[in-house]
Each structure stands twice: as C-alpha cells, then as structure tokens.
Nucleic acid binder design. Structure first.
Lengths: 144, 144
DNA sequence: ATCAAATCAGACTAATTTGGTATGATTTCA
DNA sequence: TGAAATCATACCAAATTAGTCTGATTTGAT
C-alpha cells in the first residue's frame, strides 16, 4: 500500500508546473532543484508524462515542460497512471485486468474489501486535481 | 498502490479461520490447500499473525490455528499490519513515522492527497472485519 | 515408547522492482 | 557555432518479494 517515489516525484513536479501554468515552459533542472528530485530521474518521469499527453516538451535552449491542459482538469490519478501504470490493488481489481479473477474462476471471500479499497483509492485520486494542490499551498495543512 | 501477496494470502487464510471459528484448530496444510497458498510461505505468515496476537497456534498432532478473538472484532487492517507492518502511503503519512515530514521541514504541496489517501485506505481496512468477509454473524454492512 | 502430525524458527535464494546513473544524440535559441 | 535543453536507451546496485530448505520442538495416538 505504498506509493512509489515515481508517483510522489511526478505529482510534486506536476504541481510545480501547475503553479506556474501559463508562464511558459519550466526546465527539468528548475523543477528538480526546487523539489529536491534527481534531475536524470525526473527526466525519465517527464518523458512518461509527455507520452501520456499530460505535458508538452519544448526542446532547445529556453525549453522545458508545460501542462497541456488546465491544472484543474488533470487529476492526481492521471499523473500516477502515467508513471506507474494502471492503478491496481491486486490483479483481480486492476484497471487493466483481462478478465482476471480471484482463483481464475470464482471470487475469493476477501474480494469485497479489495474492491472497496480499489474504488476508494481511485475515487480519491480521481477527484483531486493539480489545481487543487497548487492552490492549497504548502504549510497550510492544519493536520499533523 | 499494490497489496502484497503477504496481505492477500493472510487475509484469505484468516477468513478461512473465521468461517470455521469455534470448531477447533485448523492446520496450515488445510488452509493452504483450500486457498492455494504455498504451505511453507503460509507458515511464516501465521507465525506473524500469532506474534501479533491474532491467532493461537496449537502444536502437535491434531493442532493448527484458531482466531483469538471473535471474527467481527478482527479487522482487515489488523491482519495487514500484522504481516506487512504499519500502513503507509508514504513516509510522511506512515502510521509509525517519527516526526518525519515532507522535505524534513515543511509539508509539500502534494501532502493533502497523500493524507486523504492514507486516511481513506485505513478507514476502509479498519471498518471491514473478518466476520463481514466470512459472512458469519454480527451484522456489519457487507462490503460491495 | 515410539511415531506421525503439526507448529516453531531462521537461514537461504532467485527473481523482480525500485531508484537511480551514464552516455550520447537531437533540437533550438541566441 | 555553442550552450541549453529535451530525447532515448542502456546500465546498475540495493532492496523487496515471494518463496524454499533444513531442522527443531511439541503433542496426540497407537
């Protein structure tokens, strides 16, 4: 039930782009140094985000990345899926399963929780957008 | 966001025990064959479950494992924590973090989603019991 | 007493995933 | 032309995962 560093990094990086949306491309170097993410690793992530159509890459001097859509139309789930693939609590609840079911035949007794969990996770990630996060700035969270 | 096979197996095994609760100990061999789980692997898991106080192990011939509490008082979260440790979406939302925060200092912009996600996951796993899944008794809502 | 069935315990291992690095090519602006 | 940037792929070490192996100990039944 852990988030990969890919997803963590990617979401943070995307929130950076969201916060500066409309102000031209931002370079990997810039984002990496602001967020404390290894540059070359972030480069990989941005390539995946680009292939998923979430960002546009501007090459050459003065280049960088920009969101392709408005921040409030890109969900955290979009970003997570782009870098980590389909969200899947287990095979039988995966978003990309090919008719895979518990025990290959019938549903196991535990299936209802996994299903509920899967839906709960997707629902939260789907309903939170980069716009939400970019607007809710760091340090403003009263909890914890 | 994937469940480990440890958790999957452990929950399924515990539901087996729950379904036969009160009918004496059930052996690993029995559970393993019913659920299609490697025996020796399941043995490890049951040892963790015992150390967590969720089951009692009866040694010797005719032995096996039994739940130490009523099925509807053992949550799926209890089982998951027993075999996989504290539930943690990321370090800064982990159930056992030692004051660890995003960037070691302030909260990152993404923190609100991770926090929401963590709470959502724990809430679902906490509120579903082995009794619910086994279908035995004491009427909580059947998931899904 | 002996034997078989079972838990107990820990070390070991193969494969996969994770979290990166390294190298170099290509594009673009100045 | 040169620097700044993305693009692309290959490589790698460490950790994790999902087991297996070996053997000890306990207990019930013959």
């Amino acid at each position: 039930m852990r988030l990969s560093s890919r997803s963590e990094y990617a979401v943070r990086a995307m929130v950076e782009l969201a916060a500066s949306h409309g102000a031209g491309p931002i370079s990997i170097r810039e984002v990496a140094s602001r967020e404390g993410i290894p540059e070359k690793y972030l480069e990989q992530l941005f390539r995946k985000l680009r292939k998923a159509g979430l960002v546009h890459g501007a090459r050459g001097s003065g280049g960088g990345y920009m969101l392709t859509r408005e921040p409030h139309t890109i969900s955290v789930a979009d970003v997570v899926r782009a870098v980590d693939g389909p969200i899947a609590v287990c095979d039988c609840t995966s978003e990309n399963r090919d008719g895979v079911q518990c025990h290959k035949r019938s549903l196991c007794a535990a299936h209802p929780v996994w299903d509920k969990l899967q839906k709960g996770i997707v629902s939260i990630l789907d309903s939170t957008t980069l716009g939400d996060l970019a607007g809710t700035s760091a340090g403003s969270d009263p909890a914890d």
